[in-house]
Amino acid sequence: MTINRVAVLSVVLALAACGQSGTNPPTDPAAPINTPEAEAPPPTPPPGVGSIMPGSGPQTFVGRWAASAAWCANLQGAERPIEITTTRFEGYENSCGILSISQVAEGYQASLACASEGQTSNERIKMAVHGEGMRLTWLNRNNAVITLVRCPAPAGAPAAAP
């Protein structure tokens, strides 16, 4: 009878080893990670940008820019500043998402997905900042150049990070 007890005990131990384990079978998903970072929703790209987001990079081009310093105070109309962030390029009657930004010798080159008056287009620009001025070149518009001046932040706006 001792041999039968050993045999039964061996079978019971073998079956017990087949129960729950700390490793998921290949067909089962892993348990979710419960950390604040894992629970945060992924960033949502602006409309028209897709899943490719530009890096933050040096932000010399970020801000409000106008063809004339007198336009800086205007909040509406054709003679108002454009606003550039690391993800958006907003102008009069147009709105662009920045698809990509690359640093080049003279500044930055960006690819834009734009919407204007119900039409969409893809644009390529080069931004070269020198002091408080920017030379903006429209690469797919026969290299048309616009010279802009930096506008101060509007009253009540949060101060830029150092």
Results as ranks from 00 to 15, higher is better:
C96E: 03
R80L: 03
T87H: 08
A31S: 12
A155P: 05
E117S: 13
R80E: 09
G107Y: 02
A14Q: 08
E93T: 12
A30S: 14
A160R: 15
G131T: 07
S68P: 00
A70V: 05
Y108V: 01
N4T: 09
G133M: 11
A30V: 10
A67N: 10
I82N: 06
G97H: 02
V11F: 03
A31Y: 08
T120I: 11
I98W: 03
A128N: 07
A113R: 04
A14T: 15
V8N: 09
N4Q: 10
A161Y: 06
A7V: 13
A128C: 03
A113P: 01
N4C: 09
E83P: 00
I84V: 15
R141E: 07
A38C: 06
S121Y: 11
N34M: 13
E93K: 14
G63Y: 02
Q20W: 11
T2A: 12
P152L: 07
A14E: 04
S116R: 12
K126W: 01
T44G: 03
S111L: 08
A70M: 02
Q103V: 13
T87D: 12
V149P: 00
T27N: 13
R124S: 12
P36H: 04
T60D: 15
T2E: 15
T85M: 06
C96D: 05
V8P: 01
V104P: 01
P54Q: 08
W65Q: 06
A7N: 06
A105Q: 10
P162R: 12
E132Y: 04
T35A: 05
S102V: 11
G91T: 03
Q59S: 15
A14K: 02
L9Q: 07
A161N: 12
A161P: 08
L139K: 01
A160T: 14
N142P: 00
P32G: 04
A73Y: 00
M134S: 06
V11E: 05
L15D: 03
A78L: 13
S102P: 00
Q109M: 04
V145H: 08
K126R: 15
A157N: 08
I84R: 03
N74I: 05
E93V: 12
L75P: 00
P58A: 14
A16P: 02
P152M: 07
L136D: 07
T85E: 02
V6F: 09
I52T: 14
E39I: 12
I101V: 15
